[in-house]
Design a protein around this nucleic acid. Structure first.
Lengths: 232, 232
DNA sequence: CCGGATCCGGTTAGATACTG
DNA sequence: CAGTATCTAACCGGATCCGG
């Protein structure tokens, strides 16, 4: 380990040495959101090289923030989990994210649209409890995207498991959600209420009336959606 | 500006792009602590090269976190001040520092002793209100250090201004504080109570009885001293 | 497919010196 | 006081490859 230290006893400096390395804060957000496997983490930080991810995981393990262990029962699969010190980073991530939600210009965020990250985040935050107690299949159609990223299926199983597919799983679709990537992202971030998007025709729902009416309940928004903007 | 972006719309990622660059979190702590001038900031981040400091200041200005302006009345002196967005970073710095205070091993912090940073921090946090309403001169003697860093004088003026000198200002000394750098740092960080250090003979006070008795009131500790450690 | 390791080129940071 | 300039070392991004 090279001496890339700030050489300050101050707890801010000591913490920043490990927390403020490139990608680390974003990676920790993935952990706080619940990811545990190498390739699961990769999906949340797709632009991070696997080599750097591997290095950061080692650094975080050395720092006592995560633990690496074998997946129970599986011979050579590994998982990474937050330690108590790692779980205690949740307020830090929340403070950073709340500040970002409040002060980063809306347009700057909306220049980084990414359907993979959006759908992955939406999947993680679906609340199945207001849904009918059967399998519910919701198809999202991004009308402005090319074929490969255009269609997505959320499958909420009776056991409350949520799957995300980018190829047709073949089930009957209960609700179609037709929109564009920007509108869906604005909704997710809390910039645009669902009702307004529907009024403006930027979001069109077709299918099961109950699922449609309850959209605002089962489609949880970003954890930061409720933080108010102070700038336009 | 190269594209060193995370390319994620998530507010954590957007905020981390600017907040988690090398040195930036430590620099922001300096701002939150009240520094405004280039060389004042340098004193708080002595291991940061002036070139990088200059670049970071420009980055923070571009990000809308600080503002650069001329010092009122002075022709070519400049100052940097937090904007509203910058002041709103205080909870972020506090969250990072509190986590550090709680989870960074004590020994790791105490490997980075630095009398300049310690005295600079102490000076900033002196509370003159419990002191006699006259000039109070306190000499700190680090018995384990060489001549150049051994003696320090805190001068609390009647107008409540606090000066720090590393050369004898020539005033009569009201209180002598004789200790070693590690003990003083432990006290500052909240690891060791003043009373215990005195009992163990690691801190020796000589001079004005009232100043001595009130030490715990005018010597404010680190803002993070009250955060409890969860690890030994 | 999973969980990485290796190699290479470009960018960034550290050290030191210097200037208006 | 408030920064630049310059050179070198460390780090990062991207692509490729590898063993189970």
């Amino acid at each position: 380990m090279t001496d890339s230290s700030y050489e300050q006893f101050c707890p801010v400096a000591m913490a920043a040495e490990v927390l403020c390395a490139r990608w680390t804060m974003v990676l920790l957000r993935e952990f706080v959101a619940g990811s545990t496997r190498f390739n699961e983490l990769r999906r949340g930080v797709p632009r991070m090289s696997p080599a750097l991810l591997s290095k950061r995981l080692k650094d975080l393990e050395t720092a006592g923030i995560i633990e690496r262990s074998r997946v129970a029962g599986e011979p050579d699969l590994f998982e990474y989990r937050l330690t108590e010190a790692g779980r205690d980073l949740k307020p830090v991530i929340e403070a950073v994210g709340s500040w970002g939600q409040r002060w980063i210009k809306t347009e700057a965020s909306l220049e980084k649209l990414d359907p993979n990250l959006l759908m992955w985040d939406m999947r993680r935050n679906i609340d199945p409890s207001p849904m009918p107690r059967r399998r519910n299949t919701i198809q999202i159609i991004f009308t402005d995207l090319q074929e490969a990223q255009r269609n997505w299926w959320l499958i909420v199983e009776p056991d409350q498991d949520v799957d995300l597919c980018s190829v047709d799983p073949g089930f009957d679709v209960d609700l179609y959600l037709s929109t564009d990537l920007r509108t869906m992202t604005e909704i997710w971030m809390g910039y645009t209420p669902i009702a307004r998007a529907k009024e403006q025709g930027r979001l069109i729902l077709t299918g099961n009336r109950q699922l449609e009416a309850d959209l605002g309940r089962w489609l949880s928004l970003s954890p930061f959606a409720k933080v108010g903007k102070l700038v336009a």
